[in-house]
Amino acid sequence: MNRCRWMLTSLLFISAWLAASAGALAAGPKPWQMNFQEAATPVMEDIISFHNLLLVIEILIVLFVLGLMLVIIIKFNSKANPVPSKTTHNTLLEVVWTVVPIAILMVIAVPSMKLLFFMDKAKNPEMTLKITGHQWFWTYQYPDNGDFEFDSNIVDEEDLPKGGKRLLEVDERVVLPVNTEIRLLMTSDDVIHNWAVPSFGVKMDTVPGRTNESWIKVTKTGTFYGQCSELCGVNHGFMPIRVDVVTKAEFAKWAAAAKVKYAGIQTPPKTAASATAKAIKVAQAAARMPGAHVLKR
């Protein structure tokens, strides 16, 4: 009877969990989520399916060890087994527990390499998005769509629109076309940041002095969120990423309008040498984020 109730509870829990994971198009984390955010690119789909393989193998290993330990606890406690054996060697056993893990690792290594090489670079990119990290906002540049660029800042809690996600909403969103192979080029003009969108399976450091490359091909329209994923200073937790993926036609319309809208925007300083400009940016960023305390320089 008690067991019935327990099973019912866990069933409810599992179904709630499944319902939560099979969400709608608005990606982003869900309350009590226990697995990945919904995949929106082939790369993330492959990450999830490879991880499913890993998870099964790993759970079996843990259960195997746990099972052995339970047997040991039951059979070889000092009451059940007062006289200990003196066995300290068994060559066959030792060979087996060396060779079997090697075999398991080989099973893992093959799909691992396939995934790694697949996710590396875009094969035939149709457009490029250039991303520059700053303390503490992102600059996006569209070199193939009119070469405009704009800054994307967090929306403060008090300015949040109704239903907006705290710490995830930005003032100027990245807009990208669906089903388009897009090359991402990333750099930074101050410290190392990391541009990450879980649903895309993208996570790449933006390193000053380097340009890193990644790629996405988003297969679903909708809204996707991410956060800076490399500790970058005081407001590291407050430089979110929001990507709106729209149809190709909508994107073309948006890009044409954006080219006009962002035409007058001053380009941010490209080198860390321009210290004054950077100091101003730091001060501005600090002013935007109430409660943030910038280091005195």
Partner: peptide, 25 residues
């Protein structure tokens, strides 16, 4: 032993650069 195994298997997950792209940081 038990917890080292539990923490060790997630190490295998993270060793794979492919899935690490989802887990890093």
């Amino acid at each position: 032993i038990f917890l080292f195994v539990a923490g060790g298997v997630t190490g295998i997950t993270l060793a794979n650069a492919g899935v690490d792209q989802a887990f890093h940081d």
